[in-house]
Every structure is written in C-alpha cells, then in structure tokens.
C-alpha cells in the first residue's frame, strides 16, 4: 500500500530537480548589473516610503480563520462521502443512520454559517 506512493515521490523529485535546475541555469547565464534604483521596491517610479511589512486589514486575517474552520468541516465530509454508498450493503438502517448523522453535522455547520452572516463577518465593506 505504501509502495503506491513511491512513484509520486519520484515525480516530486523530478519536479524539484527541474525547479532548482531552472533557477541555477538562469543564475549562471543571466546578466547581472544591479543598480540602487533597480534594487528598490517598485512604487511606480516614486521613491519608496517605508517598508511594506506593516499592519494590513484585519479582513484578510478573519477570512483565513473562517477558512480554517470551514475547511476542517469539509475534510470531515471526505470519509463519509467515500463510504456512504458502500454502507447500503449492510442494510438500509446503516445508510439512513449515516445520512441522519450528517444532517446533524450540517445543521451545526449551517448554524455557524448563519452566525457569521449575522455578525457580518463576510461583509467586505463593514
């Protein structure tokens, strides 16, 4: 079973070799002629003002947190989705149980979703 993944590792190796090789080749044959203006960050020709590493809108952070919460809930669907069809072999009560359990889970998910809607966490302009 674990051997199934060996070809993927080989492909990863090939991809890494190509990525690194491309950078090395470009570094060897590319021209190099740095000037202070060239090494400055691009700001439409103005002299750069300060660093870019400073505070940014909290909205992006909020989106990332909501993503983590919802993505974990999506991941919970994966094993359930893969076995749902096969549960029927054991009898209809199993598959109905699985469906009911998922309905409860989705209920909680929907509750959380309505909560963030009401809190206007998804309003970009709020």
């Amino acid at each position: 079973m674990a051997f199934d993944f060996v070809p993927i590792l080989i492909q990863a190796l090939v991809a890494i070799i190509i990525a690194v090789g491309v950078i090395v080749i470009a570094h060897l044959i590319g021209s190099r002629n740095p000037t202070p203006a060239k090494l400055a960050p691009y700001e439409c020709g103005m002299s750069p003002v300060g660093q870019a590493w400073r505070r940014f809108p909290i909205k992006f952070f909020l989106t990332a947190m909501l993503f983590v919460l919802f993505d974990i809930e999506v991941i919970f669907f994966v094993p359930w989705a893969a076995v749902l069809r096969h549960l029927r072999a054991g009898g209809s009560e199993y598959v109905l149980f699985a469906l009911g359990e998922m309905a409860v889970f989705v209920g909680f998910l929907a509750l959380g979703y309505v909560y963030i809607l009401k809190k206007r966490a998804l309003e970009w302009e709020a």
Binding site: I16, A19, V20, I23, I25, A26, H27, I29, G30, S31, R32, N33, P34, P36, K38, L39, A40, P41, P48, Q51, A52
Partner: peptide, 22 residues
C-alpha cells in the same frame, strides 16, 4: 527569459524570495 537579469530587491527576504517560486 533565461538571459534576463534576476533581480532580488534590496529590502526583500532573500531566501523566501527564492523559495516562493519553487
């Protein structure tokens, strides 16, 4: 593209700047 100059800005974090495209 291969013959173009590979510029890393002075203020940039050099290693992460290199790691990101990979």
């Amino acid at each position: 593209l291969a013959f173009k100059e590979d510029v890393t800005p002075r203020q940039a974090n050099r290693w992460i700047h290199l790691l990101a495209p990979c």
